[in-house]
Amino acid sequence: MEGMAGQKSSLAWAVNLAAFLLVLLWTIPTLGLFVSSFRDRDQISTSGWWQSFSGSEQTGFVRSGTADDQVQQDGVYVIEGSVVEGSQELSAWGTGARQPAEFQPGDTTEIDDGIQLTVTEEGTYRMTSAEPFELSRGERIFTTTISPPEFTTENYGRVLTAGGLGRAFMNTMTVTIPATVIPILIAAFAAYALAWMQFPGRALLTAAVVGLLVVPLQVALIPLLRLHNDLGIGKGYIGIWLAHTGFGLPLAVYLLRNYMVGLPREIIESARVDGATDFQIFRRIILPLSFPALASFAIFQFLWVWNDLLVATVFLGNTREQLVMTGLLRELMGSRGGEWEILATSAFISIAVPLLVFFAMQKYLVRGLLAGSVKGG
């Protein structure tokens, strides 16, 4: 029979396909953001990031010189110039908006009585006439050019200096690291007590922790902010550390308690027989064995605090010196909505650290989450 132990489910292919699609849907936008962070404004506005590795085609026009720019050579009057910039390559040109690619590089056409126009493969043009030019405004020369792939690190320089992201990055680190460490320290002690210490009301406390998991943090923002204001810690790092600690503790205690309950009872009983105290058991046995669960919660808490905007806005403030990275990105989207290269660079910097943390500790994530899912106390 399919689905029994040792049998491979017939739906395994569907699970694998769904996992592959989820990874693909997450990877493609991240890759696009990374590539866009190295492109300039013109490239982003004219082509997609997937076209950045090949030459991008652009259509436009330039105006030739006027009568003031003419010179006389070999009995004819000449106006010369260029229709391309930098490393662009000319693929076609024209003299009218309806047919902007009518001619190939090197062709010559007559744009007016007695006026000949030639555009070379190098992108230079030459207008000649037997009579003096009377152009007060240059002739329009439409061009179709191909720009080679080009990447720049100037976006990162602007963002980290003039953009203010460096200060916001430090603010975010100042908030995130203590808001990740403090809940782990408190929850580890509480989880050990709920898992292995006998005292009245232990089951009631465990049920209260589970109940707090479903309480939305939004309902506690205003009462907690009032309490912080009464204590004098309303707008500062201490207030936001305590807020994140309070919001993260239920999940931390629940996760660590379930993990510690699944640890071998014989090890702890042997340590007690040998005369070890609860603190010695906790420090020398429980903590080393619980590292996967500690690491898995650290990943969750770090990512949640790093990407938080609501709690930072309420408990830290909106001044330029207090903004975290999510708050700065919100301001950049409002004030620099057209500077997509700055937004892309800022957004990628904001997700780079969480990505490093996740990939560095991902091997502990599944182990820590699943270790206490079957066996409990």
Rank of each mutant, 00 (worst) to 15 (best):
F282Q: 13
F282P: 02
R283M: 14
R284N: 13
R284Y: 14
R284Q: 14
I285N: 09
I285P: 09
I286Q: 07
P288T: 13
P288L: 12
L289A: 11
S290D: 05
F291P: 03
F291N: 05
F291G: 06
P292K: 07
P292I: 06
P292R: 07
P292S: 06
A293M: 02
A293P: 00
L294D: 03
L294C: 05
L294G: 06
S296V: 12
F297M: 11
F297A: 01
F297N: 06
F297D: 00
A298C: 03
A298W: 03
I299Y: 07
I299G: 00
I299T: 02
Q301Y: 02
Q301C: 04
F302A: 10
F302S: 03
F302E: 08
L303V: 09
W304N: 10
V305N: 10
V305I: 13
W306V: 11
D308H: 12
L310H: 07
L310Y: 11
L310G: 03
V311E: 01
T313S: 14
F315S: 00
F315G: 00
L316G: 01
L316I: 10
L316P: 01
G317M: 06
G317F: 10
N318Q: 15
N318A: 15
T319Y: 07
R320D: 12
E321S: 13
E321K: 11
E321N: 08
E321M: 10
Q322W: 04
L323N: 02
L323A: 07
V324H: 02
V324T: 15
M325A: 09
M325D: 08
L328F: 06
R330K: 14
R330E: 14
L332Q: 09
